[in-house]
Design a protein around this nucleic acid. Structure first.
Ligand SMILES: [Zn+2]
Ligand SMILES: [Zn+2]
Ligand SMILES: [Zn+2]
Ligand SMILES: [Zn+2]
Lengths: 171, 171
DNA sequence: ACTTGTCATGTTATTTTATATCATGTATGT
DNA sequence: ACATACATGATATAAAATAACATGACAAGT
């Protein structure tokens, strides 16, 4: 399923979300990378899990658990909530995907493998999501945390706004 | 209404930024400030809204909508979800309170009045919440956003970890 | 005082998101 | 083949949030 048949040739640059890129190969690459990771770390990339990851990669935007579930049903997998939630739990725990708290939705990771604390830019118009690496330990929050004696273990950074496309269209 | 009639003189160590402080006066001050703000801005601080804000200030930690609703019922207000959600919507919209997305819960604002983009430190053990001012426009995310052509309008920053108290106890 | 418009509250019902639990199935190591 | 751990499937329920509609309070203008 090609979302954009004639995507520009080699513009596969960093903040993946908002830049044109060869999506098919991007999906395949990421899937292969995930499989490799699983082998390496002794994890099981089962059919449901792979299917969910594939969907998230294809969409390249945040998807709700029940939207995912619908597609799983169509694809012949189990059709009850736990099926989707369990696959998502696996993908999130192992950092193949992330949860966007603000949307109660999920998105494929753009930096698989690399241990990271992600920051997201979420377009409020088209729901596109781009993932950047966040340096939580630095910056104002890190300083505030140290001052307060708070031990940061994990951080959620979600910026909402307009993606380049939607900004243009809004002229 | 004091939730704790014989509260010890100065051991009311609910964490504002995880620091002991005179909570009663902190609540009263904040409530008064909110009322003043409302007058100034032509908003209506009605009984339900005041009660909810008071609860959030008293608790000084994240509270779920349904916990709030329970207390509203006890206090003789309406007992159906919209009652709580509407009061919360008002408080959040006008920045007297914030929603903690990660917890589906709400917390009173620690910097009322000041226009701000908050960042939270949430203790995973005791649920205490401290609010810091975030400089989203600066920092790595701001840079990434500018590079990607993304217009940040609003940002959620939520750090999870251990507060000083819980860190100590964990020795 | 009466009318009108706006905003707030209350209630019912429903939707959306997420888990708990138990039974069954599948891979893996011995 | 057996024991074990892990995955899936299905039923049921919980938790969080909203839609829709009726009623009530209140102020502004007449
Ligand atoms: Zn990632
Ligand atoms: Zn957009
Ligand atoms: Zn605040
Ligand atoms: Zn704590």
């Amino acid at each position: 399923m090609t979302s954009d048949p004639q995507s520009p040739p080699s513009d596969h640059t960093s903040p993946v979300g908002f830049r044109a890129h060869d999506h098919d190969s991007c999906v395949e690459t990421a899937l292969a990378a995930a499989e490799a990771q699983c082998k390496e770390r002794g994890l099981r990339m089962t059919p449901v899990r792979r299917k969910v990851l594939e969907m998230l990669l294809q969409e390249h935007r945040a998807m709700g658990a029940y939207a995912i579930l619908d597609r799983l049903r169509e694809a012949g997998f189990g059709s009850q909530p736990p099926v989707a939630y369990r696959a998502l739990e696996f993908l999130v725990k192992n950092e193949f995907a992330h949860k966007i708290e603000r949307l109660n939705a999920f998105v494929a990771c753009s930096h698989p493998g690399a241990a990271h604390s992600p920051a997201f830019m979420i377009c409020r118009k088209c729901d596109a999501v781009a993932e950047a690496m966040a340096a939580t330990a630095k910056g104002g929050l890190g300083a505030a945390a140290r001052a307060a004696g708070f031990e940061i273990e994990r951080a959620v950074v979600e910026a909402e706004g307009l993606c380049p496309d939607c900004t243009e269209k809004a002229q």
